[in-house]
Design a protein around this nucleic acid. Sequence first.
DNA 1: CCGAGAAGTAAACCTAGGTTAACGACATGG
DNA 2: CCATGTCGTTAACCTAGGTTTACTTCTCGG
Lengths: 244, 244
Amino acid sequence: MANPLTRKLEAFAPLPEADRRLIDDICRNPRDVGPREDLIREGDDPRDVQLILEGFACRYKLLPNGRRQITAYLIPGDFCDLHVFILRAMDHSIATLSPCRAVAIPRHRVLELTERPAIARALWWASLVDEAVLREWLVGVGARGADERIAHLLCELLMRLRTVGLATDGAYELPITQAELADTVGLTHIHVNRVLQRLRAEGSITLKGKQLVILDVDKLMAFSGFDVNYLHLSESNGKKEPCR
Amino acid sequence: MANPLTRKLEAFAPLPEADRRLIDDICRNPRDVGPREDLIREGDDPRDVQLILEGFACRYKLLPNGRRQITAYLIPGDFCDLHVFILRAMDHSIATLSPCRAVAIPRHRVLELTERPAIARALWWASLVDEAVLREWLVGVGARGADERIAHLLCELLMRLRTVGLATDGAYELPITQAELADTVGLTHIHVNRVLQRLRAEGSITLKGKQLVILDVDKLMAFSGFDVNYLHLSESNGKKEPCR
DNA sequence: CCGAGAAGTAAACCTAGGTTAACGACATGG
DNA sequence: CCATGTCGTTAACCTAGGTTTACTTCTCGG
């Protein structure tokens, strides 16, 4: 299967063959990381950039009151901390959720990437999309009820996983605990459970183990007020095949 | 008073004199915009970039359920939509809150800015800070109680306004309605009112008309779990004078 | 194949914040 | 100087979601 970073960037625009090879080359020596391990901690000044190749990771912040808020999911093809070039210290932490495969890319190799115009533009695009996703999460937590909020998240993950080839139709693997989901959407794990029960009961989803199936994607999107628009996928993407 | 954009960017690193002059030049013909006016609407493909010179504006999103979520405050020195160069359509709207003075900067002039290395780096920094602020808002809405959430926002605004010279000590002008605050923090305007009453009663703040005074800044920061860190101000900034 | 911890479920009960409905205090403009 | 509208304030009542506790079902190492 194609490199997830390549797939993701090509959701913006196709890359020259040479760029794809560069990306492949950079991903040569990945390492495996267990679940629930910190990749970068708040306050760190990391020296290389982490790229997720397999599994789910997240950005999160711990509060004095003991609560944790997850502010982003990092899925295959996502960079952890491109900020590194500008900012001194991390203002949040990053941890794996599931077992992951990741590469630590040293600064100079990242520069090789950004010297390729097509990649540079695509990375800029990706960072704008990340910001849009963040905004959408804020909207969800601030203004959507629990059910819509979770349904919306499931739709978003579907679309994002599709672009890296990890979802077909409405089905994908969601290697995440209900408690982690709770820290994501700002609810208790118990209430998350209630919502999932409800979504199951009304026939919207199926979720056994880590296998999620959205039974009627359009319906769930309508219900949760999901509008793909904010993911800024090129027209060639989304429902159809990635551009050749 | 110095140009707010210059002041803001110099919170990252000092700019060469020529860069400052360029910024001044670009801000030559501002226009006045009344309160509650849309500057850019969701779906638009705007042709120039808006820069706020005076007043408060905001990014927001309207939901099918009729609620509105404000996802960012734009204060003097903030750009509205640098995304323009990459993305086709806005995925959210931008409106003024108070009366504003703004400049519409055509694309080619923005390019002049980004050709100056010091400015380009500072703009990159600014966009990373915007993202950090967004994350912090998400943390607030997702994991802080109403009182801390609002207190935290007031602290954040204090720090941001200080860097553009619009706050001294704990005092600044907050030209925003309680209903707008409510749409920001994900509460009802009625509950926002309750919280403000409480903060007043316990002697944390003073707020008459649009004049806000935080009576004991350190105390309010401690209470709300505010850690300046995420604004990534250079050490020379924050409490002290901007670097000469 | 067994045992222990992690994840999921369930039910009873509680509270932070929402809703509704007034009313008072300013503004603004005619 | 009144009329009208927006903003802030209060109070009574309500509900979505939180808390607590406990039981069940996985999972996985030994």
